[in-house]
Design a protein around this nucleic acid. Sequence first.
DNA 1: GGGTTGTATCGATGTTCTTCGATTCAGCGT
DNA 2: ACGCTGAATCGAAGAACATCGATACAACCC
Lengths: 136, 136
Amino acid sequence: MPKQELAVLGQDGVDGVDGCPPGLLTAPLDDARSVELAKVFKALGDPIRLRLLSMIASRAGGEVCVCDLTPAFDLSQPTVSHHLKLLRQAGLIDRERRGTWVYYRLLPEMTDRLAGLLTRPAGQPLPQPAGTAGDA
Amino acid sequence: MPKQELAVLGQDGVDGVDGCPPGLLTAPLDDARSVELAKVFKALGDPIRLRLLSMIASRAGGEVCVCDLTPAFDLSQPTVSHHLKLLRQAGLIDRERRGTWVYYRLLPEMTDRLAGLLTRPAGQPLPQPAGTAGDA
DNA sequence: GGGTTGTATCGATGTTCTTCGATTCAGCGT
DNA sequence: ACGCTGAATCGAAGAACATCGATACAACCC
């Protein structure tokens, strides 16, 4: 099965008891989860892919034709296609062929999940502004 | 000035008119911003660094001694130190020396900012579940 | 079917990243 | 001052990544 779509991020039974996923900021990430999460963040760790993602996500109809994306960059067509592939493998976007053209759209479940992972629960004790901590 | 701390992410005057930062999902990311943002996501794009960050962030007192972090991984001490450096250069954590030991703590401003960038404004039109869009 | 256009895949190449051992720097104790 | 321990920096080696040109695949049109 060469097709792995990274579903391991928080929808299996590993969620916290209060309904919120464990977080990343609230409990030490276990080994397997960190590997999966890292793939997604790695996909976001490139300026081209960030711009691609934001172009796709911010488009009104929710879809963008590759033919609109490719000329927006100073890169070859295969390179842009490669970046789109990585974003897709990370579960951030999906594609649909319609006739000759291919349209990409955001998968908001993934960005939602990332946002949730990076959001700390409301009343986190916020450590001392640095310097006033344990200076006994 | 070899010390660049990545302050370019949303606190300068580029915010939206409604107080919320532009987002990443709401408007195409400009070139410069995408480069800065990519550095932060790249720092998160590694399992070791994700686990380091979550260990630091989830620690009760808000601080973790390097001497507690290093033995938690199957890596050499210089390698762990290197990963901590990258997280620090990304603006995600900060360090403080206290006597012989060095303590790392989360910089929640950065994770908050990332969470905000990945959060789409409440009433985003959510594209059709794919297939029912513009099939005239 | 043959030509054309849009998109993806394939190899190759140069760059960046991860990791290590060796070394250096900082602070403590004697 | 000396040695000791914890942490950071320095090269170097191997792996992973970004990029390209060439090529293959898909759908349309004549």
